[in-house]
Amino acid sequence: MLQKKTLLLATVAGLAAAALLAWAFAPRPIVVETAPVLLGRYEQAIEEDGRTRLKDRYTVSAPVAARVLRIALREGDPVAAGETVAVLMPVMPAMVDERSAREAAARHLAATANVARAAARIERTQVAADEAQLELQRTGKLAREGFLPPAQLDAGRLALAAAKREVEVALAERQAAVHEQAQAAAALLPANAGARSGQPLTVRSPVDGVVLRIPQASEGTIAAGAPLLDIGDPAQMEVIAELLTTDAVQAQPGGAAVVERWGGPPIAARVRRVEPAAFTKVSALGIEEQRVKVVVDLDAPPESWRVVGDGFRVTLRIFTQRVDQAVLVPVGALFPIGDGGMGVFRIEDGRARLQPLELGGRNGSEAWVRSGLKPGQQVIVYPPPTVSDGHRVEARQP
């Protein structure tokens, strides 16, 4: 009996040890992270930094070189079309050095002498005209009495006419000399910054809008063509972004877009124009890139983005593909399979099953599955290397 009992205990101990070893070396389920397959809207978009700008920006400039009075307007003030935005006054004469002052004084003296010379010439030509008048009278008397031929009388008349023309020339020369004297005298006047002589020139706003920028609000002398202020309508806003040429070919005019990260809710927008010419831009990493400008119009009413101003930084998303009622799977669940396609591990009865997929597209977070999965199924996200087809798995608890 003792031997039988000992044998029975040894057998039980051996079976327990075998069961313990089998349990210890048996494959355990791999804990994995799972995600459900969803049915929703798939969107694929190009995302790029952009900036806002006014559609029509007007730079009001000075038409002539002048002295602009202090501009009372400030950035943000509304202006109406035709409203005076700046007043220009004639510029003060330039300051002269000693040499130039002496030259101006000498020119004034020369002009004064020319006036005197012109006056003397007037007297001389007047005397010649009087002499020609007397000679014509004597010639006419002798011609009527028959002592002189008619031709000599005609010559006398022509000499009188020429003498009168000389008087007119002398008078004109004296008038020119007087003007030259006045011009030379004006050059001697000292420069006076406080002078306000001359008619002011008013500069008016070309359109209704608000003042965007005033380069120089204080009074000062400006050159012709110098900008005085910028005017625009903030309600007419657009967004411009510089896309890579490989992305820009997918942004078609009329395509939907959205403006984000401007400090408020997303704003619906639409692509208006893709410029035809690209340009080279060096990235922050020193890589030369070919980019093209894309212009986008805001579809939302101005009241929803009235705080956005000109030149604000925003994020622009241009949609290139949008599908409703699409089967969606996380991008982290995808991995390449041997035939060059993509696949996932779906969970079926606690085991991982390799599932090839036909994809319609993918973005940064989701993939659109044309065939291979159904909504509601569970897939393994970021499958570990130890997972294989048919391996037991266990979903990680949150």
Rank of each mutant, 00 (worst) to 15 (best):
L136P: 03
Q137A: 15
R138C: 06
R138P: 06
T139L: 12
T139R: 11
G140K: 10
K141F: 05
L142N: 10
A143R: 08
A143W: 04
E145W: 02
E145Y: 01
G146M: 04
L148S: 07
L148I: 14
P150H: 10
P150N: 13
A151V: 11
Q152D: 15
L153N: 04
L153V: 03
D154Q: 13
A155C: 05
A155M: 12
R157H: 08
L158A: 14
L158F: 08
A159F: 11
L160G: 09
A161T: 13
A163Q: 08
A163F: 07
A163H: 05
K164Y: 11
E166L: 14
V167C: 07
V167L: 13
V169M: 07
V169P: 00
A170W: 03
A170L: 08
A170R: 04
A170S: 13
L171T: 12
A172D: 07
A172P: 01
E173F: 04
E173D: 12
R174V: 00
R174N: 07
R174D: 01
Q175K: 10
H179V: 09
E180Q: 15
E180K: 12
Q181K: 07
A182H: 02
A182I: 00
Q183K: 10
Q183F: 04
Q183T: 07
Q183C: 00
A184N: 01
A184Q: 01
A185F: 02
A185P: 00
A185I: 02
A187K: 04
L188F: 02
L189Q: 10
P190H: 02
A191M: 09
A191Q: 08
A193R: 09
G194W: 09
S197K: 09
S197D: 15
G198C: 06
G198F: 09
Q199R: 12
Q199S: 11
P200E: 08
L201W: 02
T202E: 14
T202W: 02
V203L: 14
S205K: 04
S205W: 04
V207D: 04
D208R: 14
D208Q: 10
D208I: 05
G209F: 05
V210L: 11
V210P: 02
V211E: 02
L212T: 13
R213W: 08
P215T: 07
P215K: 06
P215I: 13
P215D: 08
P215Y: 08
Q216A: 13
Q216V: 11
Q216S: 07
A217T: 11
S218E: 14
S218C: 00
S218G: 06
E219L: 06
E219F: 06
T221E: 14
I222M: 02
A223L: 09
A223Q: 07
A224Y: 03
A224C: 05
A224M: 05
A224D: 01
G225S: 11
